Computed example of a mutant assay.
Amino acid sequence: MFRLVGRLAVAFIFVAEFAYADPVVRDSRDGRTYRAIASGKLNWFTDNLSYQKTVAFRDNDKNSFYKQSGWMASCPAGTHLPDIQEWTLFAKDRFTGPRKLSNVKSFAGKTRGFYDMADPARNIQGKDAAYFAVADPDGARAMMLDVKRGNAKMVTLPPEAVVTVRCVSERDFYAEKFVDSKTMKLTDPRDNQVYKVEQRDDRLWMVSNLKYSLTSAKQCLLEDTTFCKKFGRYYTHTEAKKACPSGWHLPDDGEWRDFQKDRARLNWDNLGRGGCKDWDGYCNSDMTGHYWSSTSIMKNTGRSWEFRRQAKSIDRTDQNVQKGLYVRCVTELN
């Protein structure tokens, strides 16, 4: 019926946490929307394409199937049909692990088999698998997901075979981190606070201190909310480790080391103000700024970084976890 051109035994398992809701792609041709998941540099449709003007066949379950001659032009603007390399990378990223059978079924959904338009009876073929179109200039290859065994194989189909289509689009890593790449501003989805960010190598750093409220006005300098608006909020070490927006995190000691290496690039007026909360007192708010890292070396302490504005110096110390320090969040652009 068809010829195997390669074999890739794989499993489908979701292991990644996403910084934002799974993307939805809108087809401007008919307004239909498609759910997607992120993998590598691409968003992958988890719904079958259903653009009616190019559908060649629909089965009793209302699945849409497309002729090989129309595969390459089937996807909406801004998306494309995945090629062999993209399918292979997707398989390496997603099709591994002990839950391969359930995850192959999850990705395949209700999709089953393919149809040979040269068969007048239109009988389903390969009904124990799902078949998805592949952008392949050398032949009519498809990715087959075996829903009985949880395996995947690249196969060559008959010339008149029709299969389902899943499209892919390039990911917007900035949008996934809630950042407008034009203004370089982060909008925290929890409270709509806006923070300027800057890129350092493959990381984005907040340029101002976090203001997200985990407790009360006690997080503010002199317990005055005016200072929370001006400088940001103080956090205990425990609070700091859970304060950042989804997809962002409290930098560890190594990330702070990288951040401060280029001293000429540091904005001392920005970093070296706001002080800290030292039990019932406060550090010098005009000349210093104190920041938590996620690193803890000794019991009941957290590694902290102090920036001195006037002296343009930095101290790296271990502070009691109950002290109130500021938080700058960071994220990887991947």
Rank of each mutant, 00 (worst) to 15 (best):
W292K: 14
D253P: 11
G289I: 02
G289F: 07
R273A: 00
Y291Q: 10
M287P: 01
L266V: 05
L266S: 13
F259K: 13
D286L: 00
F259Y: 11
D262N: 09
R273V: 02
G274L: 01
D269C: 03
A264I: 03
M287D: 06
R265A: 14
Q260P: 04
K261E: 13
R257L: 13
G275D: 05
G281Q: 01
D258A: 08
G275Q: 06
L266K: 11
D258H: 09
M287I: 04
K277V: 03
N284T: 00
L271C: 02
S285V: 00
C276I: 04
D286P: 01
G274K: 06
W292A: 15
D252P: 08
D262S: 03
N267R: 12
E255M: 11
D280M: 01
S285I: 00
D280L: 03
T288V: 03
N267T: 01
N270I: 05
N267Y: 04
G274I: 02
L266D: 14
W268C: 08
D252Q: 07
W279N: 11
E255D: 12
R263M: 14
M287Q: 07
N270E: 06
D262P: 06
R263C: 08
W256R: 15
D269H: 11
D253E: 11
G254S: 08
G254R: 13
N267A: 08
A264N: 14
R273K: 10
R257V: 08
W268S: 11
D269S: 09
C283K: 10
D262L: 04
D258L: 04
W256G: 09
N270C: 10
D252Y: 05
W279G: 03
A264T: 12
H290T: 13
W279D: 15
M287N: 06
F259D: 06
D258N: 15
D278Q: 12
K277L: 10
R273D: 00
D286R: 01
A264D: 11
R257E: 13
D252H: 15
T288M: 01
D280W: 02
D280K: 10
M287V: 04
K277H: 09
C276H: 15
Q260E: 15
W268K: 12
D286A: 03
K277A: 09
W256V: 01
S285R: 02
N284A: 00
N267W: 09
G272T: 08
D258T: 13
Q260A: 00
D278C: 12
W256E: 09
R273Q: 05
N284C: 02
M287W: 07
